[in-house]
Design a protein around this nucleic acid. Structure first.
Length: 330
DNA sequence: AAAATCAGCAACCGCAGTGAA
DNA sequence: TTTCACTGCGGTTGCTGATTT
């Protein structure tokens, strides 16, 4: 037996809403509220619309304080940062942008922001050589030194942006008992329970279960603020968690070893992970329903990696030997 | 000027989660 | 404990105006 339809599709109006319908719905809800039941609402209002359609119209267009029009740079940054961290969880992202709807943000990302990012990336590539798998070792050494010079702090803790940490969790192995990579003064471990522990600094514990990555302080670490409302994400910075969004631009850009990513896939439910794997496997990611695509080569430099992941016995070999990441069984 | 293509966005669809009965 | 109505979400579709050929 199939699911009962939410309304009689033959007798409901579809397509764009007329101003009259808008004003009827708006007036009714402002006076009576939704009554907690969208299905019966159209009848009460006197509209030949599906309840779901009414709900959507109200939430995306009619409700008060909806912001339409251009997104600000700050909004762009928030969307990008959260997308890199949690993927296409539009409702969560929308919760961080007052007045914006998930639908708005989704459309904005799919039609404009993604292209904008790619354009930025292209311009950046024009100005500096790309780091990556084939990057020469001297350049990589210099880049790492620059990064650590910028990020290492007095108590020997690095600053991590939330997406650096969360993304590293997303690419963590799911089926391995325990993968570990250690270097310098830092250890970085992944367990098969999809959690990552910072064993050296004992700052945070990450879990990305239930589609939502989150981090919680352990062993006396302090956290001042949460980056994501729903996820309760924290990250360490100088032993204290600050606002990671401000640090979004302080990233180290690295190329991807496709073997590493291919080795991390099975059974992973994270949407970011899924899209990454799609990109890796097909070399392209679909951006719209039309035949437009964005190559992984273009997007990969936009994804940030925690420096520790790339620290190994010899950090300069890490790009050539995925097993050093602890992501492949040896 | 007309046709084709593109871009933006509102709206729809179907699935999963939730809670009441 | 199970069933089912309802809600919310993310992916997709298709319409419309703008731009290009």
């Amino acid at each position: 037996m199939g699911r009962a339809p939410c309304c009689d599709k033959a007798n409901v109006k579809r397509g764009p809403w007329s101003p009259e319908e808008d004003s009827k719905l708006k007036a009714y809800i402002e006076q009576h509220g939704t009554g907690g039941n969208w299905i019966t609402l159209p009848q009460k209002v006197g509209l030949k619309r599906c309840g779901k359609s009414c709900r959507l119209r109200w939430l995306n267009y009619l409700r008060p304080n909806i912001k339409h029009g251009e997104f600000t740079d700050e909004e762009d940054n928030i969307i990008c940062t959260l997308y890199m961290s949690i993927g296409s969880r539009w409702s969560i992202i929308a919760a961080q942008l007052p007045g914006r709807t998930d639908n708005d943000i989704k459309n904005y990302w799919n039609t404009r922001l993604k292209k904008k990012l790619l354009l930025c990336n292209k311009q950046r590539k024009d100005h500096r050589p790309r780091t990556g798998y084939n990057h020469n070792k001297v350049d990589m050494m210099k880049e790492q030194e620059d990064f650590f010079a910028t990020h290492q702090t007095t108590n020997n803790a690095y600053s991590w942006s939330p997406q650096q940490i969360l993304f590293s969790t997303l690419i963590a192995p799911q089926n391995h008992d325990l993968a570990e990579c250690s270097a310098n003064s830092h250890n970085f471990q992944y367990s098969s329970t999809d959690q990552a522990y910072f064993s050296q600094d004992q700052l945070c514990q990450i879990s990305s279960t239930n589609h939502l990555a989150s981090m919680n302080p352990v062993n006396g670490a302090t956290c001042n603020s949460s980056v994501m409302v729903s996820g309760g994400a924290y990250y360490p910075s100088n032993g204290v968690c600050n606002n990671g969004l401000q640090e979004y631009n302080n990233y180290i850009s690295v190329g991807l070893d496709h073997d590493v990513l291919n080795s991390t896939s099975t059974g992973h439910s994270q949407q970011v992970d899924k899209s990454v794997l799609e990109m890796v496997n097909s070399s392209t990611i679909s951006t719209t329903s039309q035949d437009q695509s964005t190559s992984w080569e273009e997007l990969s430099p936009l994804v940030n990696y925690p420096p520790s992941v790339f620290e190994t016995v010899s950090p300069y070999y890490v790009f050539e030997e995925p097993r050093y990441l602890g992501l492949l069984k040896q």
